[in-house]
Design a binder for these strands. Structure first.
Length: 262
DNA sequence: CGATTATGATTAA
DNA sequence: TAATCCTAATCGC
């Protein structure tokens, strides 16, 4: 689940479902018990994301910082009667809604200064308004690293993960193995604009969908999982059926189509 | 029922 | 680069 679109969506959903009412915070698992006690009964004053980092500011001045990592999840509480699992690090709930957090890489309370320090390590976020991109794109254009590795570097651009990097490079027709510095300025611009476009779609839909409906023919009915992506976790190109090439970049696998990406 | 895997990132070596 | 952390669904036996 967790690339930038998930976290932005979550920031909004926490705010809208818990509203302005006091929130009961607890840690059924116990590992965040002390922190939960410090925000228990407070209200959300702001909830936003920077890349994959979530910040929920509470009355009282505490800021809840959550990073889901690879396996973390925030799930809406559906069954009221079910006993909390012993893996729930944090439960946030009031009369209008509730959420259970499991498996986060980070769940902690930070000060405004600490939030600033975290964000200072991150590049521009394609999903934030007025993202200041010129510095990051210039750094990209100078980097000798493979573009596929550079796109995972959160210090350059914050929020892209393993699915989006593969799909964005496909949509832009760029081989992930090319040095970033070999991209011409129009390719860099295209990369950014497609990143913004595709991640906005992901945030709105709550899932990553990069395929063009006209091309795939999925205008009606329920989305089939096979229709959502062009290359990620596939054996064959969704556009032409050619066998994909899989390489490791930035320590993680990425597949590309040798026909459509150069 | 154990092993494997996953849209991530930090730390150690 | 490799090891490590965190959870749960899925898959093979």
């Amino acid at each position: 689940m967790p690339e930038g679109h998930t976290i932005h969506r979550l920031a909004r959903d926490l705010r809208t479902t818990l509203g302005d009412q006091p929130v009961h915070a607890s840690s059924p698992q116990g590992r965040f018990g002390a922190g939960a006690a410090l925000i228990d009964g407070e209200r959300i004053v702001r909830s936003d994301a920077w890349g994959k980092y979530l910040f929920v500011a509470m009355t009282g001045g505490q800021i809840l910082h959550v990073h889901l990592g690879l396996i973390g999840k925030f799930r809406p509480i559906v069954a009221i009667d079910s006993a909390p699992r012993n893996t729930i690090r944090l439960r946030l709930a009031n009369h209008s809604g509730g959420w259970d957090l499991t498996g986060p890489a980070r769940c902690e309370l930070v000060t405004p200064q600490e939030r600033t320090a975290i964000v200072a390590q991150l590049g521009p976020d394609p999903l934030r308004r007025n993202a200041d991109v010129s510095g990051a794109l210039h750094a990209l254009a100078r980097s000798a690293r493979p573009i596929g590795a550079a796109l995972l570097d959160q210090r350059l651009i914050a929020g892209i993960g393993n699915v989006y990097r593969a799909e964005i490079l496909f949509v832009c027709g760029i081989r992930p193995t090319r040095p970033a510095s070999s991209l011409d300025p129009s390719e860099i611009d295209h990369l950014w604009s497609e990143t913004v476009r595709l991640m906005r779609i992901g945030m709105r839909r709550g899932m990553i969908v990069t395929t063009d409906p006209d091309e795939i023919g999925r205008s009606r009915g329920r989305m089939r999982s096979d229709d959502r992506l062009y290359v990620y976790h596939r054996e064959h190109c969704r556009r032409c059926g050619t066998e994909l090439v899989t390489v490791e970049l930035g320590g993680r696998p990425i597949s590309y189509c040798p026909v459509h990406q150069h």
